[in-house]
Design a binder for these strands. Sequence first.
RNA 1: GGCUCGGUAACUCAGCCUGGAUAGAGUGUCAGCCUUCUAAGCUGAAAGUCGCAGGUUCGAAUCCUGUCCGGGCCA
Length: 578
Amino acid sequence: MTKESVIKILQEALDELDLKIKSEEIENLLEVPKFTDMGDFAFPCFSLASKIKMSPQEIAQNLRAEIKKIPSGFQDIQVAGPYINFFFNRKNLSIKLVNEIIKQKDNYGKIKIPKSKKRIQTMIECPSPNTNKPLHIGHLRNMSIGDSVAKISAFSGEKIIWANLNNDRGIHICKSMAAYQKYGKTKTPKSEKIKPDHFVGKYYVMFGKRAEKNKQLEVLAHRLLQKWESGDSSVRTLWKKMNKWAYEGFEKSYKKFNLPKHDITYYESDIYKKGKEIVQKGLKDGIFEKRKDGAVIINLEKEGLDEKVLLRIDGTSVYMTTDLYLATLKYKQYKLNKSYYITGNEQDYHFQVLFKILEKLGFQPEGLKHLSYGMVTLPSGKIKSREGTKGITMDEIIENTQELVQKELIKRFKLSKKELEKRSLVITLAAIKYALLKVDIKKNMIYDPKKSIAMEGDTGPYLLYSYARANSILNKVMKAKKKTKNKCHVLKLNSSETELVQKLSTFKTVLDKSHATLNPSLIAKYSYELSQIFNEFYHNSPVMDSEQQEFRLKLVTAFKHVLKNSLYLIGIDVLEEM
RNA sequence: GGCUCGGUAACUCAGCCUGGAUAGAGUGUCAGCCUUCUAAGCUGAAAGUCGCAGGUUCGAAUCCUGUCCGGGCCA
């Protein structure tokens, strides 16, 4: 019972009316009605109205009259104004679907590539932090997106290579170093009892504040940068020490967030001088040109972009040079089919230029993509980390949210300290990840630390709660041992059951679309809608001792699997009990 | 100045790609529902010139043009 059978019925009826229409055209016209009580497929007759002189309503009625007998597999075919609505025999379909899901469990929707076949290799670079300050709310969005895109891609059969680029050199880190040298002296994260990356960030903020009055500090930072470039050993030692602190802190944050371990980590300090060969070759091939002042540039004005410097007058590289190198390096090291960069949209222009230059160089790797997300801003405006990151570092956001979650848990249950800690972290991450992923990737969003992360309504905790409720039903029924030996049968599907089945049936389509568009928000939205429908069902359709207990048990089980999969794809773990 | 992203209910957002049935959620407000599978829940109500103006179309939140406002990047 599929779309094809609907098309066939329509085509035959249209033939009778001497309306020759290709089946592809019918397929395009067919739509899924807004509400389930309007059927499973609808055929709108508007476009036919312009072909023959008849109102869409009349056409619908005439077409319906041509369908003499309702074919098997259908329950009904109705006319509703300008639409013909097709109703499948939903009872059989429901049982079939639910059984299929239960059979495949957590693999439902997953695409398995046979070992003999080569999998698509996809590299995801994320979150690529600067090493002068702790990770903040923007990185949370970055990692949530990266993690989800990775999971969606892997679920769809791709092999993921997880990469990171540490922006570990440059004036920003020298500023932290300068302030530390001046005011930190022998202090360490341990002596100050501060998480090491926060310790480094403290000096970055200190630099920003004190440099306004103390011009010497700015001079010191630049001197440190020069010395670093020339390889001064004491400066390099200080630099290594502070970066090590940053990494120590980052690792802890990644772990807490459940970010997969990076397969490869690049360091800007290793590669920032590379890429010159690429530029020289481009110059030789006439793709780049030498400007009067000696800088090597590319003119992209014809492409609607600007002139871009690739090597400065003194022959030093710029970010673009390094990125040209790294892009090619990645494809050389791994046989990539796809390579994604996850960054904020402030870098849109940079990547547009980067990709254009790669194209001009004849390096046209498939699947090179910049996945940019909108800025996360504070109610007061853009985040300026040099002015301080109080309350908006990733660690603080997790900590503050977790505190709220624990209060809620204590109100409801008596839990051991260990269980409280474990459960609250799962709920916290669900709340944060969901809040960040449900918004379209492109959109800017405002994060208000005072309001923190919500726990009711369209939120992560709501999803976990729905899952736990489903689980609770299954446990209760098991315990009561009231499982009858009756075969699973369906007497009648009520509207909640129908909607639930229908929602379950669209999971694969949603997954496909979110994979094709690399858009986790589709899955987030689906998870929420699915849970919403389940909660309605929960309230109006008791499972235990109901006439169709067996079917409802299966329906609840299927719901559990699909919700779990769906949440997994947006990086959220479930709780069997909440 | 150029490029780019956005503007939908008081607030946060979905729908726009691929035009169709009453523009949907959540929060907040108001009114109900815990002796029945977890009330982090459910039901109902109030709340919208889909930024504005044109155009295309039988039909526009959706497509096109112009324009205003905001974010970002480049210069």
